[in-house]
Design a protein around this nucleic acid. Structure first.
Lengths: 203, 203
DNA sequence: GGGCTTGGTGAACGCTGTTAACATGGCCGG
DNA sequence: CCGGCCATGTTAACAGCGTTCACCAAGCCC
């Protein structure tokens, strides 16, 4: 179904009608299959049923397509983190839920996670990325941040929990915990336990 | 000096004499400048003063060159982690030193760090990598591991500290802590504090 | 000193990203 | 209703990349 040129059938011929989205979806498929370095604009064009030059009507470059997806990745992180945090009032459990949500995002949206952290996108050349990344942090701790207790070192704590969750996610993808659902569970449990330990172990 | 064809001058002409090492050094330079995705075998060949086909006498593919460097990266991690751990007998401080060493490795050997974790090398297709990665863990905790107290959950603790250190290193490279020496110090300090909190916060 | 092995060369292939010139067709004003 | 415009497709071309192949140079060993 991904090889069809159109989704609604209205634009049968010369014009695709929804190429931008079709390219983004094809890109995610390719990243899922071959990793971010194995994604190719030409192959994405083929899957969308379009010539290799067509994508440049919608994206300035291959990198720009990845940037668009990276933005979606940051938004998705934001959404998931916010949902995790409002689920409880206990600040320790908020951090634990944040850590678990981080690992789940890396697992369930692996292509987005890879694009965000392994595509080598130069944030200084794409200020939109910088902004989106900051936005994610702001959800956790900022002016009107969502975390309840707001101690003075809340930012440092969020950094520490984010770091440990990121590490578990990376190690999971690296195969350190093995493969399969067991490995995912180990990573989630490790991240949760580490978040609690960090939240309590800070004087 | 990296542009010269020979290092010792003995092989002036047709044969390079030390091409394998020259290519590895050129590759590290390129990764340092352009990131792992911006490294090009052709450019490395040019810097070594050799034709683009020459590298294939020493490496089966571009990926194989990266694998060779990844092995060096794992060895370097091993060396640094072992040194950090023998510096003290206090198990908590051993873990803290390990975390700091992890961040320092990422900073001082950034190209190796990037090749290890961002090159997208398929460990299942390069068992040597799998083995080298396991070796690093063995230094920290294994049969005859170096960590002193060896509680039952020592492996989980090493995973947690490794994860948080990896996260701090990644966030540092991502620019989360800003740029410059201050950012490095913040990452090191965060990793050290987190390691201590984890080491103590585990019942 | 002749031949084998190691390690270079140059040309060629197909694939990639990217650009330029041209084609199509949906839509909007007359 | 229709003619033209603009967004969005096409084809053709280019340079750079990884990789292979046939050929060549030179150090080495008997």
């Amino acid at each position: 179904m991904a090889g069809m040129a159109t989704t609604s059938g209205r634009h049968g011929g010369y014009h695709h009608g929804d190429l931008r989205n079709a390219l983004e979806r094809a890109a995610l498929e390719l990243v899922a299959q071959n990793g971010v370095h194995g994604f190719t604009l030409a192959e994405a064009s083929r899957r969308a049923g379009v010539s290799v030059a067509a994508p440049f009507r919608h994206f300035a470059s291959k990198e720009a397509l990845l940037v668009a997806l990276a933005l979606r990745g940051y938004q998705e992180q934001e959404r998931r983190f916010a949902a995790a945090i409002v689920a409880t009032d206990d600040p320790v459990e908020q951090l634990a839920a944040f850590a678990v949500a981080y690992v789940r995002f890396a697992v369930e949206q692996r292509p987005l996670f890879e694009i965000n952290f392994r595509a080598g996108l130069d944030k200084s050349r794409y200020p939109e990325l910088e902004a989106a990344g900051g936005e994610v942090l702001r959800v956790l701790n900022g002016p009107a941040g969502e975390l309840r207790p707001h101690p003075a070192d809340a930012l440092a704590l969020v950094h520490a929990v984010g770091a440990v969750a990121h590490g578990y996610a990376s190690f999971l993808h690296e195969g350190v915990f093995g493969t399969g659902e067991d490995a995912v569970a180990r990573a989630e449990e490790g991240a949760r336990a580490a978040a609690r330990a960090l939240a309590r172990g800070r004087p």
